[in-house]
Nucleic acid binder design. Structure first.
Length: 480
DNA sequence: TGAAATGTTGGGGCG
DNA sequence: ACGCCCCAACATTTC
């Protein structure tokens, strides 16, 4: 009898799970294990992510039970938990899929070395990427800092990307007497009713992830290139949290897309190409954070190390709570708070507003998103915020400053998004709802809006703050 | 995956 | 009839 542990981390699924497949093929007993432990003190698991994790673990546990296995839950330092289990149940092997975030890379290599010293067979497998981060290089053998050439190489090398695996037909039983914590012991659900609305928008779990992908591929993907820009429409896949927790892998997303739409998904004129390209941005984020592990808290562009960010806790709080006086910003921030998610177009707008107009550090934005997004992902979040702030990989040019009013006119043409999330101004006509502060008094009165009372006055002047940002970014750029 | 400023063009009003 | 001006519409440049 040989027993193996499969250490589940951010790969909460049974299909395309290399570690699980290997363990099931080689061992008579398999302990599917999840260890709850915040190993990155500077980026603790956010509240919204905890909510997702709770439900995703429930789903994985149910799936394993259907295979007559059992998910074992533990709390504490992974090495201690593993060592104890190994000793108690005569475990001979430990398998996991790799995670490329900096703290995990470091901890995993230590755990691997320690267990191997103790004669345990430890094997790790490719994680949730198309290519290992070290397998993709530019002509000089360096990591990429620009998306387009990076993605070109990824696509060219796709034949070397491992194909997705099916679920193991049979999961060997978990040995008798392995004790597990109760899911509720992990204390993942918020004490207040904050997350109550999340479940109206998301159902965590592997089965739902695949359902959502299939539905998206058969209904929406053709118009994705256009429709994805309109936050009021269901034009995006909303797969991000499922991908973050590994309920579905990027290999599966790509394979399913190609299966339904053929190889032409790589040609530019197809909606599916835009969609696959977003999977590419996810891959790029993992690549950049792996090779530049400081970029979750320091700018990739060193000229921004000394940047004079403003400090203004009142403005930060107004931004966080959706009380800036600019409806598209407030709508986005409230969508985030209420649903645990924000449309990507609006993420760009609120990020530009925080960094350029308010002049507050992108780190504040990254921290808030990390805590409140169900899809919070250290790699994607860091890349996205540095991109918006103009200090990261393939960053937006310093002069690219979104105007909230123009963005509303373009991407929320009938103002449905604003009306949904900023109901106190919903009665304003289309022409004024995007800038209530300029609306004539009789229009405001007729709509029941009292500026400064029922809806805030703008906390910053757009033109003034834009000019200030242009000067600062231009100066930062010319340093060194 | 930007916005604003500046430049150019052409139609129409008007002396 | 003609030149001049205004200005919208569009294009280009600049930040």
């Amino acid at each position: 009898m040989s027993t193996a542990i499969v250490w589940f981390r951010r790969d909460l699924r049974l299909t395309d799970h290399r570690a699980l497949k290997e363990a099931c093929a080689k061992h008579d007993c398999v302990i599917p294990l999840f260890i709850h432990h915040d190993d990155d003190s500077s980026w603790p698991l956010g509240g919204a992510s905890q909510w997702w994790l709770h439900h995703s673990l429930k789903s994985l546990s149910d799936s394993l039970q259907a295979k007559r296995s059992q998910l074992i839950l533990a709390v504490g330092e992974p090495l201690k938990v593993l060592t104890q289990l190994i000793a108690d149940h005569n475990v001979s092997a430990v398998y996991w899929n790799r995670d490329y975030t900096p703290v995990r890379v470091k901890n995993d290599s230590e755990i691997k070395a320690t267990l191997r010293r103790n004669q345990i067979d430890v094997e790790s497998f490719i994680g949730d990427v198309l290519h290992e981060p070290w397998a993709i290089q530019n002509g000089q053998g360096n990591p990429f800092k620009v998306f387009t050439p990076f993605w070109r190489v990824c696509v060219r090398e796709l034949s070397n990307s491992p194909p997705p695996l099916s679920a193991p037909r049979h999961v060997p039983p978990c040995p008798k007497g392995v004790s597990s914590r109760k899911l509720n012991d992990l204390m993942l659900l918020p004490k207040l009713a904050w997350a109550d609305q999340f479940e109206d928008h998301f159902i965590p779990g592997e089965e739902q992830a695949h359902k959502k992908l299939k539905k998206f591929l058969s209904n929406s993907v053709r118009d994705y290139g256009e429709r994805r820009n309109f936050p009021d429409q269901l034009g995006t896949s909303k797969l991000s949290p499922h991908l973050h927790f590994g309920e579905i892998s990027p290999r599966q997303v790509l394979a399913e897309t190609v299966k339904q739409h053929g190889e032409e998904v790589f040609q530019k004129e197809y909606g599916a190409e835009n969609f696959i390209r977003e999977v590419g941005w996810r891959e790029f984020a993992i690549h950049v954070l792996y090779h530049f592990p400081h970029t979750h808290s320091k700018p990739l562009d060193e000229r921004f190390n000394q940047f004079a960010w403003r400090k203004d806790s009142k403005a930060l709080r107004a931004w966080q709570r959706g009380q800036t006086g600019y409806p598209i910003i407030d709508a986005g921030m409230r969508e985030l708070w209420q649903t645990g998610w924000m449309h990507n177009r609006v993420r760009m707008i609120v990020a530009s507003f925080l960094t350029k107009n308010l002049g507050l550090s992108w780190l504040h934005g990254a921290q808030w998103f990390h805590d409140t997004l169900v899809d919070a992902d250290l790699a994607a979040n860091s890349l996205g915020w540095q991109w918006a702030a103009g200090c990261g990989a393939d960053a937006a040019p310093y002069y690219r400053i979104f105007n909230p009013i123009l963005q509303t006119e373009r991407f929320d043409p009938d103002r449905a998004y604003i009306r949904r999330f900023v109901p106190e101004i919903a009665q304003l006509p289309d022409a004024w709802i995007l800038k209530p502060y300029e609306a004539p008094t009789d229009v405001l009165k007729a709509a029941g809006v009292s500026l400064g009372k029922t809806y805030p006055l703008p906390i910053v002047d757009l033109k003034e703050s834009r000019d200030r940002a242009l000067g600062l970014w231009k100066a930062a750029r010319s340093e060194q």
